[in-house]
Structure formats: C-alpha cells, structure tokens
Design a protein around this nucleic acid. Structure first.
Length: 592
DNA sequence: TTAATTATGAATACGTAG
DNA sequence: CTACGTATTCATAATTAA
C-alpha cells in the first residue's frame, strides 16, 4: 500500500529495539512498585532455556502463580522470552492484589495487552495451540468478564468487547478489541451508530493501526531470530535506533545556523496533501517519540530549542511534512538575551549570575515565599555572597525562571513578559474574564511563535491566496498567529480547543486583526468524527494544513504525579490527532 | 463559588573523572 | 567503558484567600 520498499532497510534494524523499549516501558514501573516474593527465581527463570510448553507452565505455577495467569502470560509473550513472561505475571499479580492501583495502571496495562496481542497474531507459528485451548475452554463468559474488570477495564468496556467478539474469543482477543478502541479513541457504540457510508473512513484509522501492528510483528520475528543467533547483547545495548536529540538542538536548521543544503526525502505515505505539523515536548519519556513518529508516517521528528529564536529555551519536537529549504524568520528578530528582553533587570543583575537565556516558560510561577527566602539569604552580604549561597540562589533562579527586579530581589516573570517572549502580541491573553492563573497556564502551554513561523514560512510562496487550516488543540492560537505574522492569509480556520477561555482569546484576536476569512471553533477533538469532517471539508474545499500540539502534561518532566507517557489521560489525545489527520488524508485522496 | 498560593521529585540527558 | 554529579523540565493538587 504505502512505499514500504523505500524504508525497509533501516526499519528492520530500528524495530528490533523498539520492541525492547516498549517492553521496558511497562516492565520497569511495575517492577519498581512491586514487592513480590519471587525475587530469586528471576535468574533461574531467565537461564532455563526453552523448555517444552508444559514444563514452562509448571515452572511458573511452581512459583505460585495461577494456571490462568501463566497461560495468558505465555500466550502473550511467547514461550521464548521467560523474562517477559515473568514481568507480565508480576504485573497481573500487582493488579489483582491492590485494587486501588488498578485505575492508575490502566494505561500501562493497555500497552501491555496491545503488545501481547501483536505476538498473539503469529501464535500459530509457534506452538501455542495448547494455551489457546486452555484459554477457550476454561473461561466462560462470567470468568472472562471478571478477568477483564480485574485487569482494570470497566464493566461496560468488557461486556461490550465480549458482545462484539463473541463469548468464544480468547482474553487476548478481547483485550485487543478494547485496546484498539482506546487507541483510536473511537467508542465502538459511536462507530456503529454512524451512517454506513462513513464507517469505512473511520475504519481506515483501524487499518492504519493494524498496519503498525503488522510491522511490529515482523520486527518481533526479527528480534527473536537475532536472539537465537546470539546477537541479543549487541542489539540490547545498541541504541542507534533510539531517537536521539540533536546537540545542539537546531533541527534541520535555525536562522543563525541554516545548514540548509540538506534535502530530506519523506516516506511516501507522509507526503501531502495536506501538510501537517505536529508538536510536543522534546524531553518526553523513552519511547514516546518513536511511537509518535511511527504513527505519523515514519517522519523523523525535528527537535528544536527556541533559545535559537528568542530569549527563552523551549525544547520541542516537531513532526511535519513541510519542505525545509528556503525557510525565513519573522522580522523583526525578537530580543535574544534576557537583558535585551527585560532591560530593567540589568540594573540589579549580579555579576555572578551568568544567565543570558531564560529556561523554559512553564505554566506555574515561583512563590512569593521563595523570593523572600532568597532575599533573606542575600541580605547579610555587602557585595558577593559566598559560593554556597550563590549556588542556592542560582539553582532556584534557574528552576523558577526568576529575574532581578531590585537589590537582592528576584521575581517571576509577569504574564505579559511571557507573552512577549513567546512572540504573541501584547495583551493577547489579557482581559476577557481570564484569571491571572489561567493566563500563565495558557501561555505555558503554547507555541513559540518565531520558531513555528520559521518552519511554516515555506508555505507563503505555495499559497499566495491563503490557506485552509485545521488547528487541533489550538490553545491561544499559536499557529494562527504565526501564519498571520508570516503574511499568509487565513481563508477558513477550523479550530478545536477544549478551553472556553482559550477559544475566546482566539476569537478576540481574530476580530481584532480584522481577519477576512472564516473561523469555526469546536470544543472537543473526540467529537470530531468522519461525518463532521467531511461536511466541513466539502463546504470549504479541504484543508491545506493540519496543525496540532497534543497535551504534554503526561509527558513533561515538570509533572511529578502523572508523568504516564503517551497513554496518559490527556496525552493519549495524540491518537486523536493521528486519527483526524488520517481521516483528512483519506478524504483528500478520495476527492482527488 | 473562583482565584491565588504553596509545597510537592523524578526521568532523562550529558559531561567528566576514573 | 562505567559511575557519578549537574542541569533541565508546555505540572498537580491541597490549602487558603477573596
């Protein structure tokens, strides 16, 4: 279907360790949160080489796990990989023994089930038919239901899955069904209620999903083959295929370091129309960017730090299918140092604070108590404080982006200063009933305009008459502002944003800037189905560009509590970006 | 009720000494 | 090569104030 042949060679190599990474992704958290009694058995289990199926089952039953669990774990992980089997068993035990953790582990479990289901696809290649029998004969409907609920799925999800897949389906098939629905974030009920002519288009997303599964499968085969050949050590420790952040983080070039002689060739499936532009935090948990890139048609992410565009750092990854030659920056070039951006701080800036750039502008600011502690720590010294005090103050200043506003006085940035640093017009987020707290939050979640505009600048010559834009997770309208400042007319903009305050901000900007085009704003990406999309696209003539930065809060390092990765509650909305983009591609292709 | 304030680590990457 | 120290990070939730 797509141009597999062009990227086969590097794929084979990369996929091996991607599986490895994903296995680590769910094994590490579960291991660290467990205190199960079978610690010493790990070595024994991993060194026992490929016993027959019965022996293998007995082996784990002897360790105290139930027969059901063991069969399931073997079926999902294959009988080769005893480590993975053990990890799975420990995970199941944790889920069963601590019900209050079930919801928390829900997402982890989902990825585990998905991974297992990939392996399940070729279970007939191996000799897992024994397990299949066990699974199917010993589980009646009630047992399956309670098993699924025990695994953290809701009763509704579980019964729906049994209903759709039939009572004869294996647990793996059932969890795979639930997982597929979750991954695409399309409720099954919603799908079946849609008009018949729309369903094939929605199902296209599932076919994409299936395609990825298939590719993972073949790579898993590769991986096990290499294991048998004794290459596992090299492969396990060879992290060539882990997506590496560039150092310096300048992507395919920044205005001061153009390095624009290179010409990249996109995978065939990635070529537009439409153009697409996806953004998220660069420093996400391991494996996240590999997954994002796989879903977005294997396009290599472009990692850029906005400190090359303005006075504040902002390390972000961008996956897009835009040309990268002949980019140009917005003019005037914004202030590049703290002193240029905030001239009044210069008078009070101590010589021992050598910062010239701010750190990432976030959604929260430092407390008054903290700045008071810093003032107290400094007031005893006439000129230079001792090195230990300097270190304390500098650490806190860097951590909270504090600037010098008086003698021994530091303070967090004002909201309008953040606005300016990010490249938005003054007062863009001010007024209109938004609280100061929410203003910081909206700004902290936004694009850096100069950075994004640099990437989008190549569209100017291609669309002199303006563009139709689909903007998902619009926030305060970073994409719209960037295009406007580039002088690219906005013909029709469909903007999807959950926050009403943010929608109001964009609407106000739209009217203040006397836009000639048409702004349609929607609230929820999950409500944007193929039917509605086709309506919109037929009325405006398709989209030229699909922009979106999906929620990062489950990926960002600042999140102490719910840094759950791409399966996290909000960050999983990435799959809606993919779903909608894929629908747009499908509809555009059909209309061609 | 909303808004403001505050305390709350860890995952990850990278440099360097050994 | 590893071990260890340093630096960075689109945040959450409990509590208090208004």
């Amino acid at each position: 279907m797509d141009g597999d042949a062009s990227d086969v060679e590097d794929d084979n190599f990369e996929w091996n360790t991607e599986d490895e990474l994903e296995i680590n992704d769910f094994s590490l958290p579960s291991r660290s949160s467990l205190t199960l009694p079978n610690g010493e058995a790990v070595g024994e289990a991993s060194s026992s080489a490929g016993p027959s199926n019965c022996k293998l089952i007995d082996h784990f039953i002897g360790m105290g796990f139930s027969k059901k669990m063991v069969a399931k774990a073997i079926q999902e992980n294959g009988e080769e990989n005893t480590d993975s089997i053990l990890e799975a068993l420990l995970t199941y035990s944790a889920l069963e023994s601590s019900p209050q953790r079930q919801h928390h582990n829900d997402s982890d479990h989902c990825s585990l089930e998905c991974e297992g289901s990939f392996l399940d696809d070729f279970s007939d290649i191996d000799s897992c038919s024994d397990n299949e029998k066990i699974m199917n004969t010993e589980f009646d409907e009630e047992e399956k239901l309670s098993s699924l609920v025990n695994m953290g799925y809701t009763v509704d999800e579980a019964s729906l899955a049994i209903d759709r897949c039939g009572v004869d389906s294996s647990l793996v098939e059932l969890t795979d069904f639930i997982c597929a629905a979750q991954m695409a974030n399309v409720a099954d009920a919603q799908l079946s209620e849609l008009p018949l002519e729309v369903q094939p288009k929605l199902k296209h997303s599932y076919s994409e999903y299936a395609k990825h599964k298939k590719r993972k499968l073949s790579d898993y085969e590769m991986w096990t083959k290499n294991n048998q050949n004794g290459f596992e050590k090299r492969l396990l420790h060879d992290d060539d295929e882990t997506i590496r952040l560039p150092n310096p983080m300048i992507g395919f070039g920044v205005p001061t370091e153009p390095c624009s002689t290179i010409h990249r060739t996109l995978p065939e499936a990635a070529v537009g129309p439409p153009f697409f532009y996806y953004e998220n935090v660069a420093l996400a948990p391991k494996g996240v960017w590999t997954t994002i890139s796989r879903f977005l048609y294997d396009v290599e992410p472009e990692f850029v730090d906005s400190k090359y565009f303005c006075a504040a750092a902002r390390k972000r990854g961008y996956v897009h299918n835009l040309p990268i030659q002949d980019r140009f920056p917005l003019l005037p070039f914004p202030p590049q140092t703290i002193h240029e951006a905030l001239p009044l701080t210069r008078k009070w800036w101590p010589s021992w604070d050598r910062r010239t750039k701010l750190n990432c502008l976030q959604t929260c600011i430092g407390s008054a108590k903290l700045t008071e502690r810093i003032r107290k720590a400094l007031e005893d010294y006439d000129c230079e404080p001792p090195l230990s005090v300097q270190k304390y103050v500098l650490d806190k200043c860097r951590q909270w982006n504090l600037v010098w506003v008086g003698r021994n006085k530091v303070a967090p940035l004002e909201a309008d200063e953040v606005e300016m640093l990010l490249g938005f017009p003054r007062n863009h987020t001010r007024g209109g009933g938004i609280s100061r707290t929410d203003r910081y939050k909206s700004l902290g979640n936004s694009f850096q305009i100069d950075t994004v505009a640099y990437h989008l600048s190549v569209l100017k010559d291609m669309f002199p008459g303006g563009i139709n834009l689909l903007s998902l997770f619009s926030g305060i309208g970073g994409a719209e502002v960037a295009l406007h400042r580039l002088g690219i007319p906005l013909k029709n903009v469909v903007s999807v944003e959950i926050s009403e305050a943010n929608r109001n901000i964009l609407r106000c900007w739209w009217e203040e800037t006397n836009q000639r085009g048409n702004l349609i704003d929607l609230a929820d990406v999950q409500q944007l189905n193929g039917d509605r999309l086709e309506q919109l696209m037929s009325s405006i003539g398709g989209f030229d560009l699909v922009v979106g930065g999906s929620p990062c809060n489950n990926l960002a390092g600042s999140n102490r509590l719910h840094r759950d990765g791409l399966e996290g509650k909000e960050s999983a909305l990435f799959f809606d970006y993919f779903r909608i983009l894929d629908l747009v591609k499908c509809i555009m292709t059909k209309a061609q």
